[in-house]
Amino acid sequence: MTDDPRDDAALDALFQAERTRRFEPTPDFMARLEADADAALPRSVSHPQPVLRRTSWLAGVFTASGLSGATLAGIWLGFAMPESFDAFSLLADSSVELTAFLPGADMGSLFDE
């Protein structure tokens, strides 16, 4: 058994030199491993779209639908409101509604006082 520190240094030098030796797998072997990985890919999931791509797509749909929805609503209001919405007639109708809710109330006497 050697306890000489120089022997430890020599052994470390051997390790150091050996670490520089690389054992690289061949491209054929790597291709085989990739084929194995593809073949073993879990079948329960049928190659779904990537999350980021899917969310981007969804975001696009929402953005497009939001803009177009707002535009369509604006156009519809522009055309439909003048006919179906009459602010003056609403005011006139409101008094009718008020007397209906307050039977016996004499609106004229209120103003007389």
Binding site: E34, A37, D38, H47
Partner: peptide, 8 residues
Amino acid sequence: NGDALAGR
């Protein structure tokens, strides 16, 4: 989860 590229 079915990502082949992750396996590669």
